[in-house]
Amino acid sequence: MKTDKNDRILLAHGGGGQLSDELIRHHILPRFDNNTLAELTDSANLELDSKSICFTTDSYVVKPLFFNGGDIGKLAVCGTINDLAVAGSKPVALSLSLIIEEGFEFKLLDKILDSISQTARDNNVNIVTGDTKTVEAGAADKIFINTAGIGVKLDGIDLGFKKIKAGDKILINGTIGDHGMTIMSQRKDIKFQSQLKSDCAGLADLITKLLEGSNGVKFMRDPTRGGLAVTLNDIARQAGLSIEINQADIPINPNVQTAADMLGFDVLDIANEGKVVAILSAESADQCLNICRKHPLGKEAKIIGEIVKPKNVPIVEMTTIIGGKRIVHIPYGRQLPRIC
């Protein structure tokens, strides 16, 4: 019983019987061809070069499933890779778990699996283990993906909040807000038409080059949900130091700015999926900036501010384009478009 391309996922595809086997052998395995996965053992057996590893997991429920610049599959691979990379490790293996709603079209599933396979290849990681579950129609929204990942710690790299000192510089590898504004503009309930493109990308290569080319990197984080605002506030709070950024130095695509202004959003609060914020020693800032700018994912890299001693409690303060000052606050959890 071979599934036709126009077929849809049935509950039985998650039942552990013949249909499950079909799903795995015809749709999943051919796309993630590697020896570890091919063994189909209960757990993946991995030989790693280091005793020290990073391990992370993330779930992906993005709507729409396909957006300009990416899709849920690409996001599921890049998101986990980026979490490993910013911790100073080289991503080597991912797990892939799919929760699929009954009735989901195979042609869409295949498109997502192709994207996962391509993104994993582009970023030199293998999908080494996985799981598929199906749920009744209405119990999930089309497809949810979880990926977990293992990264091997890069030699001699030790990153952490504790290393951050007043005077350190803050780098970002390009424009902010592209992913979040793209998703918002394409959502069914916000029919905002625009030419925006998500920045969804795997940052492992850029980050490895940065860490290998300079010893001045002290801490890194990918500013995903909550955007630059949450990431900078987390850094300030955890390091016990304040942050001063300069609005004029923050790269923003003018289309993203316009879309955010129209909806009443602050671009600093908007999610990114291909950005890294790096805290650098002042001496290494130029060197790191040069390394970033030579990489396709860091051409628009900028130093956007610095770490300073807190006056009272740690805060994030921004000098605005007109020379005014304001606080950068952690946004409320949900972006609500304004009335007028």
Binding site: G264, D266, M318, T319, T320, I321, I322, G323, G324, K325, R326, R338, C340
Partner: peptide, 16 residues
């Protein structure tokens, strides 16, 4: 106007 209020605060206009 609420949009003025937000712009005034977001741009730190009061501080100058």
């Amino acid at each position: 106007c609420g949009t003025h209020t937000v712009s005034i605060f977001r741009n730190g206009i009061r501080t100058i």
